[in-house]
């Protein structure tokens, strides 16, 4: 693991720890405002980095509303449409909160929204597990280049990028630091 490297021609930090914390705080406020509270709300993170992001949003909502929000993990690998073009990937954990998702408002949480194909797979997966009242989407970074008619309801940061760039969301639960980095590939 490298040490904290600031700007370099190949690698640009576009959000640091406090930017990420503020963005997640704002998303938490927006969810509560939009849903007029947090009853019947379930946050489902998409592994790997969506899960700790969902936990942080839940922590913020608990702080704002004083209520705890169930958090789960939804692996979409088995539902992807690109399985045929790469070797079989290891599966990540699917863990729905006790109480399930039937009749709940599910907010899917992911780190980066790009083609939209992960979210399409997530919608298919949800269909197998139950029937939520509504499904919304929160992402830390929206980098554009959608290939499907999907948009996020809550966006931490809009990041116009080119296809050749690679956007990495790094968070301390998994990586070394909280930061969003753009790399030339």
């Amino acid at each position: 693991m490298s040490t904290h490297v600031p700007a370099s021609p190949q690698q640009r930090v576009v959000a640091d720890q406090s930017d990420i914390a503020r963005a997640l705080r704002r998303i938490a406020h927006e969810i509560v405002e939009n849903l007029k509270g947090s009853t019947d709300l379930v946050l489902l993170g998409i592994p790997s980095r969506g899960v700790p992001l969902a936990q942080r949003i839940a922590f913020n909502i608990a702080d704002i509303e004083g209520t705890s929000v169930p958090v789960g993990s939804l692996d979409v690998t088995l539902f992807r449409d690109d399985l045929r073009i790469r070797p079989a990937k290891a599966l990540a954990r699917t863990e729905l909160p006790i109480g399930g998702i039937d009749g709940k408002t599910v907010v899917l949480v992911d780190d980066v929204l790009y083609s939209g194909r992960t979210i399409r797979a997530a919608l298919d997966a949800l269909n197998e597990f139950g029937r939520p009242k509504a499904v919304q989407l929160a992402v830390l970074v929206d980098r554009g280049h959608r290939e499907l008619p999907i948009r996020a309801d809550y966006v931490g940061k809009n990041l116009p990028t080119s296809h050749v760039e690679k956007v990495s969301v790094e968070i301390s639960e998994i990586d070394e630091f909280d930061q969003v980095v753009i790399r030339e590939s």
Binding site: D75, L91, F129
Partner: peptide, 10 residues
């Protein structure tokens, strides 16, 4: 992981 997915009803 598949066990978990099946247990959740898929």
């Amino acid at each position: 992981q598949l066990d978990q997915v099946t247990e959740h009803g898929a």
